[in-house]
Measured scan of single mutants.
Amino acid sequence: PDLGLTQLFADPNLIENLKKNPKTSEMMKDPQLVAKLIGYKQNPQAIGQDLFTDPRLMTIMATLMGVDL
């Protein structure tokens, strides 16, 4: 199971919303991170391994779920 990750990354406004959010806007200036996020739309399971190697993803996930870290 993808634990709902498919829906989190399926939002067509995902990148724009993250660019507008004060907690994630600075991160979204990294083209490699943006490319990763776009890739998760097609393969949400890929985030599982990346969560352990890129701490920014935890902040992004929390933001998408509405959790304040």
Results as ranks from 00 to 15, higher is better:
D2R: 06
D2P: 13
D2F: 03
D2A: 15
L3S: 13
G4K: 15
G4A: 14
L5N: 06
L5G: 05
L5S: 06
L5D: 04
L5M: 12
T6V: 14
T6F: 10
T6E: 14
Q7M: 12
Q7V: 10
Q7E: 13
L8F: 10
L8T: 04
L8E: 02
L8M: 11
L8N: 03
L8P: 03
F9Y: 04
A10I: 08
D11S: 04
D11V: 04
D11Q: 07
D11G: 04
P12W: 03
P12M: 06
P12L: 05
N13F: 12
N13S: 08
N13H: 12
N13R: 08
L14M: 11
L14R: 01
I15T: 02
I15Y: 03
I15G: 01
I15K: 00
I15C: 06
E16W: 04
E16A: 09
E16S: 08
E16R: 05
E16T: 07
E16N: 10
N17L: 12
N17W: 12
N17D: 09
L18D: 00
L18I: 03
K19I: 13
K19P: 00
K19R: 12
K20V: 09
K20A: 13
N21I: 04
N21F: 05
N21A: 04
N21V: 02
P22F: 05
K23S: 09
K23I: 12
T24K: 00
T24V: 06
T24D: 00
T24F: 07
S25R: 14
S25I: 06
E26P: 06
E26W: 07
E26F: 07
E26I: 07
E26M: 08
E26Q: 09
M27V: 04
M27P: 01
M28E: 00
M28I: 05
M28Q: 00
M28C: 03
M28F: 03
K29N: 11
D30T: 01
D30A: 01
D30C: 03
P31H: 08
P31D: 08
Q32S: 13
Q32L: 13
L33R: 00
L33G: 00
V34H: 03
V34C: 05
V34M: 06
A35G: 06
A35K: 11
K36P: 00
K36S: 03
K36G: 02
L37N: 00
L37I: 12
L37Y: 00
I38K: 12
I38Q: 12
I38V: 11
G39V: 09
G39P: 01
G39D: 15
G39M: 12
G39L: 11
Y40E: 01
Y40A: 06
K41W: 14
K41S: 15
K41R: 13
K41E: 08
Q42M: 11
Q42L: 09
Q42P: 03
Q42T: 15
N43D: 11
N43P: 02
N43A: 05
N43G: 05
P44S: 06
P44I: 11
P44K: 04
P44V: 09
P44M: 11
Q45G: 15
A46P: 04
A46H: 09
A46Y: 09
I47E: 03
I47Q: 04
I47V: 12
I47D: 03
I47W: 12
G48I: 15
Q49D: 12
Q49W: 08
D50V: 03
D50G: 05
D50Y: 02
D50W: 02
D50F: 03
D50E: 11
L51R: 05
L51S: 06
L51N: 04
L51H: 04
F52V: 13
F52Y: 11
F52L: 15
F52D: 08
T53I: 10
D54T: 01
D54V: 01
D54C: 03
D54W: 02
D54L: 00
P55R: 08
P55N: 09
P55S: 11
P55Y: 08
P55K: 10
P55T: 10
P55H: 12
R56K: 05
R56G: 04
L57N: 01
L57A: 02
L57G: 01
M58P: 06
M58D: 05
M58E: 09
M58K: 13
T59M: 11
T59L: 15
T59N: 06
I60P: 00
I60W: 01
I60F: 03
I60E: 00
I60D: 00
M61V: 15
M61G: 02
M61Y: 12
A62H: 08
A62F: 12
T63G: 04
T63V: 15
T63N: 06
T63Q: 09
T63K: 03
T63W: 10
L64K: 01
M65L: 15
M65G: 08
G66T: 08
G66W: 05
G66M: 07
G66A: 07
V67Y: 12
V67K: 12
V67E: 14
D68I: 02
D68T: 01
D68W: 01
D68H: 05
D68F: 01
L69P: 12
L69A: 13
